[in-house]
């Protein structure tokens, strides 16, 4: 019996996960969310910037990572515009261009900000990390015009900003490479601006060493980080709404792991404990049916 349960059709697990995601989204509970210090550091730094400071938000992700990183972008942009910072948006991921433009211009218009004067969206420029080096030397050379075709050097929002050296704060919202590490290695290390990061949950643990050493001054990790930032700026959005679903799915997975170990130890020892990969050899009947 335990052995059979161990070989449960994975579609059953898929249904459980789907339900654990859907039900809390339809009927949210609204559990309290603790603010972690690494998220607070990003918030505090933006709070400390005087109005008119230059804030560059690089939306280095594609639509696949939208659920995690888009709410971060919304919260950060709301914060920056509330603080009257000069906002420069851009992306290093070509497939993220449309989505990035939409969020930058959308939030700007909600705050009554004028394009070219209070903010701009530079768009995408090919070359990945090389774009960062180019921007560090000459921003207008990397982006001669913004996404809307206006000459970058002539924009009032870019007044006094000729390279990354004049940018006060850069936050990269990244789903991979080029992303936060690229901005550190090719940007902050050479051009000396302050850098913060916002990443998907799957790559967040990899950035903690950079946090401790001060290579990044703060980190917003995954949907959880986005939810924390939403709370900090007093704007409960999609991230806060998604946290109940995340709680439920995490608990389903914990339950599944506990169950699988229970079944594993209930399975008779002789010849059946190794139902894992050791017997998942190609061509085995079980594999064929999986």
């Amino acid at each position: 019996m335990a052995g059979k349960l161990l070989r449960m059709d994975r579609r059953v697990i898929f249904v459980l996960i789907a339900l654990a995601t859907l039900i809390p989204l339809l009927r949210p509970i609204g559990l309290p969310i603790r603010i972690s210090p690494e998220v607070k550091q990003v918030y505090d730094y933006i709070e400390s910037l005087p109005p008119g400071s230059v804030f560059l938000l690089s939306l280095d992700f594609d639509p696949a990572s939208k659920p995690e990183l888009y709410p971060m972008a919304v919260a950060l942009l709301n914060h920056a515009f509330k603080r009257d910072l000069r906002v420069i948006g851009m992306t290093l991921w070509v497939t993220g261009t449309g989505m990035a433009e939409k969020v930058v211009s959308g939030i700007a218009s909600e705050h009554g900000k004028r394009r070219g004067v209070d903010y701009t969206f530079l768009g995408y420029s090919p070359g990945g990390t090389n774009v960062i080096i180019n921007m560090g030397q000459d921003l207008a050379a990397a982006f001669p015009t913004d996404h809307y075709g206006e000459r970058t050097a002539d924009l009032p929002v870019m007044r006094g900003v000729t390279s990354l050296r004049q940018v006060n704060y850069v936050v990269s919202l990244a789903a991979g490479t080029p992303g936060v590490e690229s901005w550190y290695v090719y940007g902050k290390e050479k051009y000396g601006f302050e850098l913060g990061g916002g990443v998907t949950a799957v790559i967040a643990p990899g950035l903690y060493p950079f946090l401790d050493t001060g290579q990044i001054n703060g980190l917003i990790g995954g949907l959880r980080g986005a939810a924390e930032y939403e709370i900090l700026v007093g704007l409960k959005g999609k991230a806060v709404a998604g946290m109940d679903a995340q709680s439920a799915t995490h608990f389903i997975i914990i339950g599944l792991i506990l169950l699988c170990n229970l079944f594993y130890f209930l399975t008779p020892r002789v010849g059946s404990r190794s139902v894992g990969r050791a017997q998942n050899r190609p061509g085995s009947p079980r594999e064929a049916g999986r």
């Binding site: 696949a64 490479t177 643990p205 990969r277 594999e287």
Partner: peptide, 27 residues
């Protein structure tokens, strides 16, 4: 590899192939 690692490896496991991975992507 990035987030696609599990999608690839889990699908491969589903087909019953022998799978050998080698990566310095610790995550």
């Amino acid at each position: 590899y990035y987030a696609e690692a599990l999608l690839l490896a889990e699908t491969g496991a589903g087909t019953g192939a022998i799978q050998i991975a080698g990566t310095d992507a610790d995550l």
